[in-house]
Amino acid sequence: MNGQAIKVQNLDKHFEDIHAVKDVSFEVRKGEIFSLLGPNGAGKTTTIGMIAGLLKPDAGEVWLMGHSVSRQPKTAKAELGVVPQEVALYEDISARANLNFWGKMYSLRGQKLAGRVNEVLELIELKDRATGAVSKFSGGMKRRLNVGVALLHKPQVIIMDEPTVGIDPQSRRKILDSVQHLRDQGVTILYTTHYMEEAQELSDRIAIMDHGEIIALGTHQELIDIVGELDRITLTISGDSAKAVAVWQKIGGVEEITSEDGVLHLLVKDSNQILPGIFEAAATVDVRINSVEIREPNLEAVFLHLTGRALRDS
């Protein structure tokens, strides 16, 4: 298990009639950011619940830094820091009191605890608010403290379950920066999100989950390659669409055209080069182009390609 921070093997979980996680297996290498991307209800939180030892899998096994979560839970959990999806803090006490308490839960004591609490307060930029009750914090500050609690004991592996949901762009940026900072320090991060851009920006590798299954796994480029290197141009037009399709098919680099309710989708090799020719050809058959949308290949397209549904709409 050298080089693997997390190993997930054949995880399966039912909640009564719902098959939440279906035979999921993957490995996360030491020092990488690994994202679980998928719509709400895809099974991401259930999967990390089992990895963190919070939920007992119906089948399968998880190892954290080589320690079995089911057989050596204390050792395995000591290697792990978890940032839960919802803010899980004692809001009636201060940030420092929260950090002190959670530090003790990870067996930190005395000077070591005090030192780490100060370091974390610096890191999450809450040192000047350390003594105020958490209930007075903004949503972003609470999220940062929520992250800070998971970092206290310097875990080797950190699981972040949608840590940026519902916060302002500034706090979101700080959290994303801190994730990259942790990776730079050699920490392994399992990051779940339904924001494609976050997964794209942060991740070394991404697993796309849907309906409890991993439907694709790889680096960003490997996933993009599933749908090819083609750009997607979406056009709304007025005029005879059949004539437009006919002239556009003759343009070099246009690989595929589909028509749907007056909206035409073109898969092309290089949208910037082809677009002027599309306008010229449309003019020759009296077709007027009302709007143009260009999408370079991204994870959204991959999800659409694999599931037939848009990630945002799922």
Binding site: L54, K74, P84, V87, A88, L89, E91, Y106
Partner: peptide, 14 residues
């Protein structure tokens, strides 16, 4: 309900 119990269970505490 507020998630802190789950967080306690995630810590190395039985």
């Amino acid at each position: 309900e507020n998630g802190t119990l789950a967080r306690l269970f995630i810590s190395p505490t039985d």
